[in-house]
Amino acid sequence: MRVIVTSTGPTIDSPMDPRFGRAEYFLIVDSETMKATAIDNASRNASGGAGIAAAQAVIDARVDALVTGHLGPNALNVLRNSKVALYEGIHSSVEDNLNQLKAGQLKPVATGGQPQYGQGGGMGQGGGMGQGRRGGQL
C-alpha cells in the first residue's frame, strides 16, 4: 500500500505535519518496504485554495491512503471524490504513523457519507437551545 503522510521534514523520522494544505512535505511511503519519497508541497504558500491544491497533489500521486492532521472542508470535498482512504494521524513521526496505520490504530476521517460536489453542497442540522441563567445577584 502507498500512503501519503504530511510531514514537517523530508525523511520518515520527521514529525507528521498536522497541517494538510500548508504542510511542508508530502511523504509517499510504501508501507511494506517503508521506503519514502518526499514531495515538496508547492501550494504551501498559496494565497488561497492551498487545501484544494494539496488534495489535487494527493490524487495525482495515485496513493491508497492519506494520513494527516486536519482536513479543511474544501480539501475534504475533493478527496471524497477519490478512492484515497483518509486517516487522522497522531502527533508523532511519519514512521510511527505508518506503524499505527498498519496496526489498524488510526482513526478514519469521517467523510460525512455521500460526497458533496464542489460549491453549493453542505447540509447541516443546527440545534442548540439555551437556558439562560441569571447571575445570583439579580
Binding site: 494565497s47 488561497g48 485554495g49 490524487i59 471524490n81
Partner: peptide, 9 residues
C-alpha cells in the same frame, strides 16, 4: 487560484 480540482471521475 486553485479554483478547480480534477478527481478521476
Amino acid at each position: 487560484f486553485n479554483a478547480l480540482a480534477v478527481t478521476p471521475n
